[in-house]
Design a binder for these strands. Structure first.
Lengths: 223, 223
DNA sequence: ACCTGAACACCGTTCAAGT
DNA sequence: ACCTGAACACCGTTCAAGT
């Protein structure tokens, strides 16, 4: 199908790596394609058969590189959570800003792949996740959180970020439904949440930030 | 199979409701059995075919009472979240204690059915969930949270509770894995979370409560 | 009104085999 | 070392039919 490369050297020094329409299968290619598929079709859209199709291979070929479907999920998830920190870790003095930045980045990474958030708490903690937790712990420690409170602090922030991101990623899909639901509230017996316009506020980023600030106020009061 | 009822009136005033070994199918029975199945086998264990088996009916009979599998999930979920508030709603003066009680009850309800937490944020908000949100909003309002902050306050608590419960429900299943994971931390490059014994602390209830207190401190500082 | 079986278009994975 | 097809034991749901 694809046109032959023009101007290729006629005397190959190394085996002519004819660019086949499909490069060789590899763990990396499988994971990358799985992420594509998940982004395009969601959690239920990932199928070993469809994955093999996209890769131009037989289904069972995947199983040479990967143990099973669970494996694919774990690998895809961790691959999406790699943390590229601030280019220079100059000796920051504002630990609180560091924490906020790290958690906003974490959330943003997951929202770029809406399937990832709901997967994360259910699966093993991959290396990229542990790195993020380590950085978070370090920042909190420097912010003055005592060692005895570190555990609670880390988990509290984890809980908040996970809950916020999973909810945001799910609700995102159905803006109309949300409006309809809010409509229903009006006529029924939920005056308080109707009044708060709970389902209508679209400033997710702002709400995330505000709630995070409240939590941080509780965890490590500003001097 | 079942022994005949003894002493049944011989002159039936209404059609003899012979108790068959399997009572008639109904939406209620389907939902109740779905919850049983989910409790026993987890999210992946619920299958229309298995559900029909347990009910002693053909698979397709279910579809008379229910639109599809999604429907079963939604119904099972909301059924598990019914809130039986405090027997007497005496005019409580301690709004903060009310909020804590409501959220601990919410979490406990979900942990009784470990599949429910991870399902909740992905599905529509059923009536029982809306009721809980309404009560929460009312309590926060009385606690002095301004109307403009109500939204953020409700969602922050929602996020925290959901994140905490989903995480707890998932990690619960694999105590050994957790120990193994913590072991791995030792030899590698995660000194801070290793030190915090992040994966070893088993006081989930206490951690939940402490983190919740921190968040509430931020949301509505005690006078 | 309520229930049914056959059939369709899918799944993940085992296995024995090919190169 | 890497890839494959056939086969197995499943899925959810449509449809046309039974009572």
């Amino acid at each position: 199908m694809a046109a032959k490369r023009s101007g290729a050297r006629s005397k190959p020094l190394q085996p002519v790596q004819e660019p086949r329409s499909e490069p060789a299968l590899s763990r990396e290619r499988i994971v990358a394609t799985a992420v594509e598929l998940l982004d395009a079709q969601g959690l239920d859209g990932l199928t070993m058969r469809r994955l093999a199709d996209r890769l131009g291979s037989g289904v069972m070929s995947l199983y040479w590189h990967v143990n099973n479907k669970e494996d694919v999920f774990d690998l895809a998830l961790d691959s999406v959570l790699e943390y590229r920190g601030p280019p220079q870790i100059v000796e920051s003095q504002d630990w609180r800003a560091d924490v906020v930045h790290m958690l906003e980045d974490w959330r943003a990474s997951m929202l770029r792949h809406p399937w990832s958030a709901s997967l994360l708490p259910r699966r093993a903690l991959g290396p990229n996740i542990l790195s993020r937790l380590e950085l978070l712990g370090k920042a909190l420690s420097k912010a003055g959180v005592a060692d005895t409170d570190l555990n609670v602090a880390i988990w509290s922030l984890w809980n908040y970020v996970m809950g916020a991101t999973i909810t945001r990623a799910s609700f995102d899909l159905s803006d109309d439904d949300r409006a309809a639901a809010q409509q229903r509230l009006t006529s029924e017996r939920y005056p308080t949440i109707e009044r708060s316009r709970l389902l209508l506020d679209n400033d997710w980023d702002g709400a995330f930030r505000k709630g995070l600030d409240f939590l941080l106020d509780g965890l490590a009061p500003r001097e």
